[in-house]
Design a protein around this nucleic acid. Structure first.
Lengths: 174, 174
DNA sequence: CCTTGACATGTTATAGTATCACATCTACTC
DNA sequence: GAGTAGATGTGATACTATAACATGTCAAGG
């Protein structure tokens, strides 16, 4: 795994929409926006963004890499929350159920949702070089999948692509 | 998990192509066909279908459910092969590398490939009721994914749908 | 023949991921 | 203030996967 980028800005190639994915931008701002959306979304549904849950989401939002549950747990424990696996798994599961985080199955890891409350069908783009994970809109993919499925009734889909993000394609040239 | 179907025929709703997926058919025959294809494919590539590998593929072919590595291992061990995890993982990895099996990430499990040697982009349809896993052609899905990915260079894709197969949709009515 | 090297198989040990079962706490309701 | 639902915490354990190394097999080249 390559060394972590030194600034939040460098660490954040993919907050934006598919077309703008991986473009540099102000990550603190994009994370803040997501937190605000998340809060509003939960309040509207009568759900509670408790301290562990909030902190878990904040931790996920710090990077565009996916984090393992145990990495999250380590952070939570260091900040005075419980230090047993269910603490992290429950928070992550809650966030996922409410569309605030996604599970990246290929990595056995979790990433914050960059478009909370949008009821989307996300696809994930995992860069095998810098390990960042971007979220793209998967409406078209979902349609193609439904078509390919024939009589099978699709309820949920997992779509993950492994490859190279634009920045790392460039780096590979040199 | 529902009880296992009583016959190979019942256990095999999805050997065929997407349109015919989940249609009843002679499973022993379809499994035999796949074995023959697999053997030819490996021979052509100068690879060896050793006893463990062959037996592993046969075990996967017995059912259209995905099997965990440890389930496979248990079977192998009972038949005189090694009883340590790497035995199963190595055979499964070999089969996957050569397109004879697929890893179903949502289930942390493996399924035999029903179209070996075809160089396809499969998508998987996982029935949440009967737990059978069918393989559909994902060419259209791949195209949609590439389009959604923008400048990201897709090298491999994982596409898995969770839902209800035709048979279980019918069963749910009653 | 027999050595060499590549590959396959086997082992022990351990790492990494996830859930169960149960106790406690908090906050709200009646 | 008793009852209740949900959230958090714990210890224990289950499940999934890989590392590291020893042995076995077999074909090619000397």
């Amino acid at each position: 795994m390559p060394p972590l980028p030194k600034t939040a800005h460098d660490a954040c190639p993919g907050c934006a929409t598919p077309g703008l994915a991986f473009a540099p931008h102000d990550h603190a701002r994009c994370a803040g926006d997501v937190m605000a959306l998340a809060e509003a979304h939960l309040a509207a549904g009568g759900q509670r963004l408790t301290p562990v849950r909030r902190r878990t989401l904040e931790i996920l939002l710090e990077t565009h890499r996916a984090m393992g549950a145990y990495d999250v747990l380590e952070r939570l424990a260091a900040e005075g929350f419980g230090r047993q696996p269910p603490v992290a798994y429950r928070a992550l599961e809650f966030l996922e159920e409410h569309g605030l985080a996604h599970r990246i199955r290929r990595l056995n890891a979790f990433a914050a949702c960059m478009h909370p409350a949008e009821d989307h069908a996300p696809v994930f783009l995992i860069c095998r070089a810098c390990h960042s994970v971007a979220e793209a809109e998967g409406g078209g993919v979902g349609a193609a999948l439904t078509a390919a499925a024939g009589g099978f009734a699709v309820e949920r889909m997992t779509v993950e692509a492994l490859g190279l993000c634009p920045a790392c394609q460039g780096a590979a040239h040199g």
